[in-house]
Amino acid sequence: MNLFNNTGILYIVPTPIGNLSDITYRALKTLQEVDIIACENIQHTNILLKHFNIKNILISFNKNNEIEQSSYLIKKLKKGKTIALVSNAGTPVINDPGYLLIKQCHIFNIKIVPLPGPCAAITALSASGISSDRFCYEGFLPSKKKTRCDLLYSLRKEKRTMIFYESKYRIIDTITDIINEIGKNRHIVIAREITKKWEMIYSNKAEIILSWIKEDQNRYNKGENVVIIDGYQEPKKVNISENIKNTFSILRSVLSLKQSVLLTSKIHKMNKNNLYKYAIKKEEK
């Protein structure tokens, strides 16, 4: 049984995110052979096609004309035409137009063929050194400070690795907001100009990255950034034995809180910070 009508095919074709050598042979063959290439920016895509000596029909397909052009392309597909969907860079539809067109293809049983290829978020994640077993992609952070802060605060206990895109104009403000809403010690990675000559990947605690990036404007004044934030980890519960508690109680009856914690930690050779947390909770009761 044929799952699709006797129609054309929509190819989703990823294009390089910086280095033209990253395009696949299959992508080039598809761009050469389809009837139409629907692209986010005709001039931008023409640079790619000319580089590889490809000539084809290009039509504009962007956020401003997506609804109108989706209807037009569906008509072409119904007549058996083959169409390649490309964005300015990377995998189409990821923060780029195309969702409506693909949704209509499903409705009209038009075959969709996605090609594998470049994606800034996944490329950066692979080099981040942060767990990639489970992650969530949040796209571009809101431009308005309050909305951005509210979103970051809502994600402060998200256990999965988080991936965002951010522009060069707001990267310093965004890292500052991450510090304020999620924590200065949360581990993050900034990946900028991925695959390009000035590619930069920097990994550290949020407060250290903020200081580092402010030291040199060349670290933030070019290109878009991928921001990767380590997921929230539940604080490890430390068991305080009855023996330690008794020692602390005896010392606390004659000494200050600070002195009692210090001496107890030395006697039992334990982390004084963990004991201090226990002591504070005990004092609050």
Rank of each mutant, 00 (worst) to 15 (best):
L73C: 13
V93R: 00
K50Q: 15
K272Y: 13
N274K: 08
L58W: 00
L152Y: 08
P118N: 01
V34R: 05
E199K: 01
F52K: 03
L125E: 00
S128E: 03
E158N: 15
T30E: 03
A191Y: 07
I59P: 10
E68S: 15
I17R: 08
I175L: 15
S60G: 08
F52C: 02
H106F: 14
N56S: 11
Y276W: 07
S60Y: 06
E224M: 03
R252P: 02
K145L: 14
K79S: 15
A206I: 06
S132R: 03
I182Q: 12
G223A: 10
V189I: 11
L58S: 02
L263Y: 12
Y276H: 11
F248P: 02
I178Q: 04
Q259W: 10
L141I: 13
A191V: 05
I182E: 12
E40A: 09
K79F: 12
Y202F: 12
S126A: 06
I182P: 03
P118Y: 12
L77Y: 13
N41A: 04
K277T: 13
T15D: 10
Y11Q: 02
E283W: 02
L263K: 14
L255E: 13
T174M: 09
R192G: 07
P142F: 01
I47M: 04
K285G: 14
I190G: 06
A38H: 01
L155H: 04
I175R: 12
F4G: 06
D216L: 10
H268S: 02
N53Q: 13
V238F: 15
Q43V: 14
T7S: 15
N273W: 13
V261T: 07
I9F: 04
L262W: 05
H44I: 01
N46S: 14
M162C: 08
L10K: 01
I130A: 01
I67E: 05
I54F: 02
T7C: 14
S132V: 02
E66P: 11
V13C: 09
H51Q: 14
S253I: 08
I213S: 02
K222V: 02
I37M: 07
I112F: 05
P142W: 04
L141N: 08
P118D: 01
S87F: 10
L48W: 00
K245M: 14
R219S: 07
P16A: 01
K214H: 04
E66H: 07
T174D: 10
I9G: 15
E66K: 09
L255G: 04
F248I: 02
I12H: 05
L3C: 03
L48G: 00
I182N: 12
L77D: 09
Q233T: 13
D216W: 10
W212K: 14
I188F: 00
D150V: 04
A27M: 00
S21R: 14
L257K: 03
K76G: 09
L85V: 08
H51W: 07
L141P: 00
I194C: 09
W198K: 14
F248V: 03
I240L: 08
S132K: 03
E68C: 06
I172Y: 00
N19F: 04
G8R: 04
Y165T: 02
A124W: 06
Q217E: 13
R219M: 11
N109W: 04
G18S: 04
M270W: 09
